[in-house]
Each structure stands twice: as structure tokens, then as C-alpha cells.
Design a binder for these strands. Structure first.
Lengths: 237, 237
DNA sequence: TTGCACCTCCCCTAAAATGGTGAGGGAGGT
DNA sequence: ACCTCCCTCACCATTTTAGGGGAGGTGCAA
């Protein structure tokens, strides 16, 4: 007996480890009667995680060959942020075709539908449903379940973020208003001279702000400080 | 008579301009019988757009005062990527409280629920539903409609992206692997000399990468390039 | 009152970054 | 085969930024 969607969502909400996502993937595969459900993401630290129903062999192969940099699904979805049917991706390059051929040999279906979700600090996740069927059947399937799949991708994503280790105590020291002004203008490409004129202060004063902000942010230099400020959302560009 | 949710979604799908989003916002407000529905986003170019049911006075005030940099909803959601209840944001600072007080004077409800969505190249959107009611009622509302609101945020977002002018030639601006290496190391505070050593190349070569990346990113200087690269998710720090 | 954090300004010198151009070899795609 | 993009290195002179110092004024809060 296949579990209900609500049941799976509820179960997902209670999950306390990666295994919970794994179990949910399997349950979803059975629920929808498709070939595969896969969820994988890249954390802010660049670490990759994944769960789903692909065969261990294919996963190992994928990781070993660093296919993340080849996979047109990843590359294509990275430029979008709404659901993407695999057919609409660019499979023209030689590497892509070889990759696809190999994937199918490892039991991956020919049809796919992936939902990218992007978080702050470069987090990027993909929720994928995969099957082996005709174009027409697949179009029907995605049309019918599109909304549920979006909800599911959110649920997976939320859970994944909760489980992510070291997801930032973030004890960020706040910058003063003037420091924020200064860093913001520096971040949009102004030179110190320009920023000083814009803020109607002397360049010497400006430097004090920049130095101060740099120390608060624990940065090694101005560029690093800007990078940290943006990554932490202290300033918005 | 209030339109059905499916009707609104369908109408949204057919929208051909910002007015379509505006109409949908109003329809949604009536459908859910809440105070406000607002959708606003920042494009990759930094341009702000918005639509919704806030009074024109409040919108004008918001823009004029550059409240985007004060609004705790924006600041809070910028660090997350799942729905956020306004109560869970940080309203402790004086500026935040003053902002909130003023917002309420302009007819904004005390309760809010915002769904952030982040696109490639630094696009960032917020779909907000706002109301004036008790904590309990609001908890019930958000609990009940959470999934639909997520779907709606996606629908708005997809439409907004379609409507965004000049929304294409970005994919061509991807950085080469070496450029990413260079920018990443610069972003974590290394000097050019250190980066050159780390990458085992001459500092001259390194500079070519930085310059190339700078041009691709349309940045005025290295710091600006790093800022853009991070904001767009081209590099992860 | 006495801190403390903020804003503002000034001095110094050495190190780093900036701007553009030329040029060779390699890999991939049409 | 040709073309384009990527990787690598080199040269030049100039501007900007880097790291510290010190010092006076405001306003808020314990």
C-alpha cells in the first residue's frame, strides 16, 4: 500500500536525519510510481549532500567522476529557479550526451523534472523526479503533479537546511549606519574618493569606517570585508 | 464573489504585464480576506519592482525613505529561503520599531508571512501576505494556507521573471574555472600575491583572470567584481 | 558622572592594485 | 580547417589602498 502524500509530508517534517529524507524519497517513488526521486544540494560550504533512489553504483560513479560539473540538469537548473523539464535542457554537447547515455545504463529514466531552490550564501538544491516513459505520459504527469512537487521540494529543502551541520551561529557584529553606508558604496564599485564625496566626509574619515567595519567583520582586507558583509546580508547590493 | 484560487493562478499565468500581477494581488486579497498581498523583487540589475495592495502612499514613503535597507522583513528573509512569519523576525532595534509603527499607521497589518525566493544572478523576491488579527488567528491562517502560498509565490515569481526586461544575456557571462578560483580566493581575503602562489601561477596571469572576470561581471573594480560574484552566487564564500 | 560607541578629521610611508596590450599553445565545437 | 574561448606569461607607469597612529566632538545609558 502506498502512503499518502500528506503522510509523507508529515513524516518528512518529523525526520531527524538524512535517513528521514531518504525514506521519504523511497515513499514518494512508490507513491507516484516513478523510477526515481532524488534530492541533492550544495551547502554554503560547498559540501555536497544527496539522498534518493538512484542506485548506489550510479551515485558513486556520479561523485567519483565529479559529474556535478557535467550534468546538464545541474547546469541548466542553476540558471533558473522554477521547475525544469529535462527535455528543455541543453543536451547538445558531447559530454552531455555521453553523460546521459551512461546515466540510462545505470537505470536512470529518460524523463525528468527538476525543481531548483536557491538559498542564501550559495546554497543550491535540486529536487528531481525521474521516470522512464513516453513524452506524452510525462507531460501529463508533470502537469498533474507540478504543484505537489513544488511543495515537496520546499519540504525537502527546509528539512535539509535544518539538518545541515554548522549552519552558522552567525554571531555577526552589527555595523554602524555610517559603516554600512561606506561598505555599501564600496561594494557597488566606488573608489574611496568617490565614496567620501558621496557621503560628504573626508577620505580620512571614510577610512576609519572601512577599517572599523573590517575589524568587526573579522576580515583581512577591504575586499574580504565586502565579501563577508554581502554573504552575511549585513549589506544589500 | 471571490474568485477561486485556481482561477487566480490561471489568470496569473496569462498575465502579460505588471498589471497582471497587480490584479492577481487584489484578487488574492479578496480571496483570502486579508489586509494585503504584496509581491516585490529585486532584479539582477538591482532594479526594484513591486506590486500589491499596499496604499500608494505607503509604497511612495517606502521607496522615498529607502526602507528596503531598514525593513526587518527584507533583512530577515534575505538570510533564509523558506517562509517566515514576521513574528519570528528581529524587531529589537529602534529603527525597526519606528518602521513598524509607521507601517501600521499607513494601514499595514500587524501580522505577516513572507516567502522569499531567490533566483540566479542575485534576483531576490518576496511574496507577502499581511493581515490585522490575533496571533492565534494568524497561526491558523498560515498553517492552513501555507502550501497554497508557496505555490502562489512560485507563480508570481515565474511570471515576474518572464516580465523582467533584458532578462537573458546573463548565462553567457559565466566565469571560467580559473576565474572562479581567482575570484574565490580574492573574496576570502587573499592578496593577489597569495592567490598567485596558491594557484601556482604568476601574478601576471592571475591579473588577467581578475580583469576578465571583472569585465564579464560588468564591475568597476575588483572589489565590485567580488561583490557581484557573491551576490549572484557565481562564487561561494 | 563616567563610561562607551559613534562621527569626524588629520598625519605618515610602503605596499598593493590598476589600467591596457601583445603573444603563444591548447581544447572544443561548426 | 577554422574559429573561439581558455590558460599562461610578460611589460609599462600611475593611482589607490594598506597598515598604524592620535584627537576632538556628540549622544546614550548604567
Amino acid at each position: 500500500m502506498t502512503p499518502s502524500l500528506d503522510g509523507i509530508l508529515q513524516q518528512l517534517e518529523c525526520a531527524e536525519a538524512l535517513e528521514g529524507l531518504q525514506t521519504a524519497s523511497v515513499a514518494l517513488r512508490d507513491h507516484y510510481n516513478v523510477a526515481h526521486i532524488v534530492y541533492h544540494w550544495v551547502s554554503s560550504s560547498g559540501q555536497q549532500y544527496g539522498c534518493g533512489t538512484y542506485s548506489p553504483e550510479w551515485v558513486a560513479r556520479y561523485v567519483e567522476q565529479a559529474y556535478l560539473r557535467v550534468d546538464p540538469v545541474v547546469a541548466g537548473c542553476y540558471q533558473k529557479f522554477h521547475p525544469v523539464d529535462w527535455k528543455r535542457l541543453d543536451w547538445s554537447s558531447k559530454a552531455s550526451r555521453a553523460f546521459q547515455k551512461e546515466a540510462i545504463e545505470y537505470g536512470v529514466g529518460n524523463q525528468g523534472f527538476s525543481i531548483p531552490i536557491r538559498g542564501p550564501n550559495g546554497q543550491f538544491a535540486l529536487f528531481t523526479v525521474n521516470n522512464d516513459c513516453s513524452d506524452e505520459d510525462w507531460a501529463n504527469f508533470t502537469e498533474t503533479h507540478r504543484q505537489h512537487l513544488i511543495i515537496l521540494s520546499h519540504a525537502f529543502n527546509q528539512k535539509a537546511l535544518e539538518l545541515e551541520p554548522g549552519r552558522t551561529p552567525l554571531a555577526a557584529q552589527a555595523l554602524s549606519p555610517r559603516e554600512i553606508d561606506a561598505m555599501t558604496l564600496i561594494a557597488v564599485g566606488y573608489s574611496r574618493a568617490q565614496v567620501a564625496v558621496t557621503l560628504s566626509i573626508s577620505e580620512n574619515t571614510l577610512r576609519v569606517y572601512i577599517e572599523s567595519a573590517r575589524h568587526k567583520l573579522g576580515a583581512l582586507n577591504t575586499t574580504h570585508a565586502v565579501a563577508k558583509a554581502i554573504a552575511r546580508g549585513v549589506i544589500v547590493v
